[in-house]
Simulated assay, not measured.
Amino acid sequence: MDRIWERPSEQHFKLDWNEASVPPSPRVYEAIVSFLSNSNHLNWYPELGSRSLAESLADYTNVPAAQILVTNGSDDALELVCKTFLDPGDAVLVPQPTYTHFLVYARSRGARVVDFFSRDIFSADIERLEAQVRGGQFKLVYLVSPNNPTGVVYTRDEVERLLIAAPSTLFIVDEAYHEFYGETVVELVNQYDNLVVTRTFSKCFAIAGLRMGYLCTSDYAVGELAKPFNPKSVNRLGQVAAQACLDDLPYYGWYVSEVDKARTFLTAELRRRGLSCYPTPANFILVQLPEPTRFCALLAEQGVYIRDRSDLPRLPNFVRMTLPTLDQSEEVLRRVDIVLAQMRSSSRSAAVASPGPEGL
């Protein structure tokens, strides 16, 4: 297969939405072509409930297939949870800053979102969080682990503490970046009724365009979620592609390794250039610099697209960059250097142009 990352000089780098920077496994293409070539039956609805895929996910997660719902990306899973469990006036606790689209789902139900801020945004601040949820005043708590964009993680022990502290509160743990982090709380759904874990095929598995995700939860919660759930909502090609992803885990192991190498390389190189760089256990890093909006715009002119996150609370002057592969990182860094030189040059020109005290 002709791999697009082998031609960096011709390539644009879309590093703004934390999608994979490589194509999915070749098996994904092979599986889709095979399906379309052999009595594909696109005139029929997809497999109801994606039960075959749920069986494979049971092996992948160590959660029974009956406790898994396959959805249109993890966004669909988050919306389903809100639709099922939230009523107008319910209080939802959300550690901030975090993935903002969840707030849309919660507020669309008439829920009241309460922000929680750690004393250090790069820490879970679990003692204060536990104190906040104790007493069950919140209907739902939303945790992203690793968090987007700060990279904060909630360990298994920490999540279990919260589940015990507030047994009447439903906790969502969004593990969109699980494959990069490698640790999970998913098996806790076998022990606690008040936990839902959501995941996606859009990040590590590189099929964001096919919108595949899933949730794992307890017998009780899955029974409630199944009531509004549409079992034919997941498209057939997505089902085929997701199964092919699970059939080629070594390919994705290679990709995770590339992201790990790129994280180490880019963090060191950006710091060497005098930038404040914050690595995360996910597939992105945060960089703090004086003019984030201008930096992003100039970098886009070089064909590298990253995300200005300075609009989020307590992230002054921060940008977020999805991690490419190690080979891609060298070309990305070359273009970053061009932009840094442009910004230094314009700063010097502005300083020369500014009148001194004698000219005032």
Results as ranks from 00 to 15, higher is better:
14 K>A: 12
15 L>R: 05
16 D>T: 04
16 D>R: 13
20 A>C: 11
20 A>Y: 01
22 V>S: 02
22 V>Y: 01
30 E>P: 00
36 L>H: 01
45 Y>H: 12
48 L>K: 14
53 L>A: 10
66 A>G: 14
66 A>Q: 14
67 Q>H: 14
69 L>I: 15
70 V>L: 03
70 V>F: 01
75 D>G: 13
87 D>V: 08
87 D>L: 12
87 D>T: 13
89 G>E: 10
89 G>R: 07
90 D>C: 10
91 A>S: 10
96 Q>L: 09
98 T>G: 11
102 F>I: 08
105 Y>H: 14
107 R>C: 01
108 S>V: 07
109 R>F: 00
111 A>L: 08
111 A>D: 03
112 R>L: 13
136 G>D: 03
145 S>N: 06
146 P>W: 01
160 E>P: 00
169 T>W: 10
169 T>V: 07
174 D>Y: 07
181 Y>C: 00
187 E>V: 09
196 V>T: 07
200 T>H: 05
206 A>P: 09
209 G>S: 11
216 C>N: 04
218 S>M: 04
222 V>W: 09
224 E>K: 15
224 E>W: 12
236 R>G: 00
242 A>F: 00
246 L>P: 08
247 D>F: 09
249 L>Y: 02
250 P>L: 09
257 S>L: 10
260 D>A: 12
266 L>T: 09
270 L>I: 02
274 G>S: 06
279 P>N: 08
281 P>S: 07
283 N>P: 02
285 I>C: 02
285 I>A: 02
292 P>V: 11
295 F>S: 04
296 C>W: 00
303 G>T: 02
307 R>F: 00
315 L>V: 05
315 L>G: 08
323 L>Y: 03
331 E>C: 07
348 R>C: 03
348 R>T: 10
350 A>I: 02
